[in-house]
Amino acid sequence: MSSFVIKSIGSALNATSLISSKYASKKALNLFASPRKGRYTEAQRKVVSSALFEEVTYNGTTIATYRWNGKGKTILLTHGWESNASRWNYILKDLKAQDYNIIALDGPAHGRSGGKLFNAVLYSEFINVIAKKFQPDVIIGHSVGGMASVFFMHNYPLDSVKKMVLLGAPAHFTGVFSRYKSLMGYNKRISNGLDNIVLERFGKPVDYFSAANFTKSIKAKGLIIHDKNDKVIPYEDALLFANRYKNSELISTSGFGHGLKDASLTPKIIEFIDR
Rank of each mutant, 00 (worst) to 15 (best):
I19S: 10
L13N: 03
S86C: 06
E249K: 15
F152W: 10
D94V: 01
V198R: 06
L18K: 01
A131H: 06
S17I: 08
K261F: 04
G146E: 01
D227I: 01
D195I: 14
M164L: 11
A64Q: 10
V129E: 03
N30Q: 10
D159K: 10
R275L: 08
R36K: 00
I224N: 03
S83K: 01
T215A: 00
K27W: 12
F256Y: 09
I103P: 07
E55C: 00
I19H: 02
L95M: 08
Q44H: 04
D262C: 03
I273N: 03
A28K: 12
L167D: 06
D227T: 06
E271Q: 07
I6H: 11
T174F: 12
L166R: 01
D106W: 04
S264M: 03
V129A: 08
L166N: 07
S17V: 11
L199W: 06
P267Q: 05
G114C: 06
I273S: 03
A85Y: 02
R244L: 08
T62M: 10
V165Q: 03
F173M: 08
E82N: 12
W81K: 14
L77Y: 11
R112L: 12
K204R: 14
E249S: 15
G175Y: 02
V138M: 00
K219P: 11
D137C: 05
A43Q: 09
L31E: 07
G257C: 02
K246Q: 07
R189Q: 06
G146Y: 02
S8A: 12
H154W: 06
R87L: 10
F152H: 12
G111M: 01
I127L: 01
A104C: 13
G175R: 10
G203S: 02
G203W: 01
I190E: 02
N213A: 04
T78G: 06
L77D: 13
R36W: 00
K216C: 10
L260N: 14
G10D: 09
S252T: 13
R67D: 02
S252G: 02
G115C: 12
E200A: 15
Y100E: 14
K7C: 05
V176K: 05
L95P: 15
F4H: 15
E271C: 03
A24I: 00
K188M: 14
A64R: 00
G146W: 08
Y235R: 07
F177D: 05
Y235N: 10
G145R: 09
S21D: 09
N213E: 06
I269L: 05
L199K: 05
V206E: 10
I9F: 05
R87H: 09
S50K: 11
L239V: 09
Y245M: 02
D262T: 01
L265W: 12
S252F: 10
I103K: 04
Y245S: 04
L77F: 14
A85S: 01
